[in-house]
Nucleic acid binder design. Structure first.
Length: 346
DNA sequence: AAATCGGGGAT
DNA sequence: ATCCCAGATTT
């Protein structure tokens, strides 16, 4: 019976829970921010961002009122930037609809932008003590191994089934600890890729995959499709001590962030000159920089870089291009990691 | 149901 | 190189 895992799991968690910034004082806002940051992102990656974010935006009101550039700058390098844009939209709803206080209710949390079933369950259980499940990738891996479940954990139907299963066995007195214990076990003991540390697992005696010596065979996952390769041409425009950056569109990849000129395909010097001429930018000199590859989850950019010295623009702007000094750029403009190779020129 | 959306660390 | 992460939203 699966319910037998509850007590040994909670005992293990009490003795082994990691000390994490968001566990010190699990207020609804702090739990919310941590859960959004932790979506598809490891604990170690989130650590440097969490305290800085909380210090800069200590509450729902500050988050709701924060200018977008400053908000994205706090998220710069974390990835999946719509997470923080959605969270700000949710903060504005919380201000207007709930008088600035997070709703103490799973269904109401689920309605907020950026909060899905997992995050609503995590906030409900950890911050409010509501006995609802929080099923993430860790939990699915642990459960699939415990029961040798052959189903593909990427399927929504399988996640729903485990939510129902776990929802029916929540310890009513410690739902937050139980959810975190399952995730913690998956994160530090029942780790992916067949390297599980079964000797340290409090559930070893209950684990069917362990008994069968088949930990490596679980969880089952459908193979993922190949990434698309996109050729890009990146132009580092230098005008005196200023460089050119452009704001990306409000939707889609890297929405709202800034970047150097980033053009489709690999362009010849002639094509580059034509492009600049059409935008009334006088190029004085073009120098090849290194090529660079950046891998996203579903596509790759193969970038050819050029350093282009241009005449000082009369005003500050040409079209949507802004010329800024290095220190101002570093302080105020969020730029994706994809351009890391070229930042030394800017 | 499938595609989109980042980045980095482990293997 | 491949995997995968305290997932959500859009198509």
């Amino acid at each position: 019976m699966l319910k037998e895992i509850i007590e040994p799991l909670l005992d293990w968690y009490d003795a082994n829970a990691r000390v994490l910034p968001w566990r010190e004082e699990p207020s609804p806002y702090r739990v919310w921010v941590s859960e959004i940051m932790l979506q598809q992102t490891r604990v170690e990656a989130v650590k440097p961002f969490f305290d800085r974010f909380l210090e800069s935006l200590p509450g729902v009101k500050e988050l709701a009122e924060c200018p977008q550039d400053r908000l994205l700058k706090l998220w710069e390098g974390l990835g999946y930037y719509n997470r923080v844009r959605n969270m700000q939209n949710a903060a504005r709803v919380v201000m207007e609809k709930y008088d600035g206080r997070m709703p103490e209710n799973y269904e109401a949390l689920l309605e907020l932008p950026g909060i899905g079933r997992y995050t609503a369950g995590a906030i409900s259980s950890i911050a409010f003590g509501i006995p609802v499940p929080a099923v993430d990738g860790n939990v699915l891996r642990v459960m699939s191994r415990l029961t040798m479940d052959e189903d593909d954990i990427l399927k929504q139907s399988v996640k729903s089934r485990w939510e129902r299963e776990i929802g029916g066995m929540m310890p009513q007195d410690r739902p937050g600890a139980f959810n975190q214990a399952l995730m913690e076990l998956g994160a530090v003991v029942c780790v992916p890729n067949g390297t599980a540390k079964c000797g340290q697992c409090p559930l070893e005696a209950f684990c069917m995959a362990r008994e069968a010596g088949r930990i490596r065979d679980f969880p089952k996952k459908a193979p993922k499709k190949q990434r698309k390769i996109e050729k890009r041409t990146v132009l580092i425009l230098l005008a005196g001590n200023r460089t050119a950056i452009c704001k990306r569109p409000e939707n889609g990849l890297l929405a709202g962030l800034y970047e150097p000129l980033n053009l489709k395909e690999h362009l010849s010097r002639e094509q580059i000159l034509n492009y600049l001429k059409e935008r009334h930018i006088s190029a004085l000199h073009i120098q090849e920089a290194e090529e660079s590859k950046h891998i996203f989850s579903h596509k790759e950019w193969h970038m050819a870089g050029y350093i282009v010295k241009v005449e000082e623009p009369l005003g500050r702007e040409t079209d949507d291009i802004i010329f800024v000094e290095r220190e101002e750029r570093k302080k105020n403009y969020p730029i994706p990691s994809a351009f890391r190779a070229y930042m030394k020129y800017m």
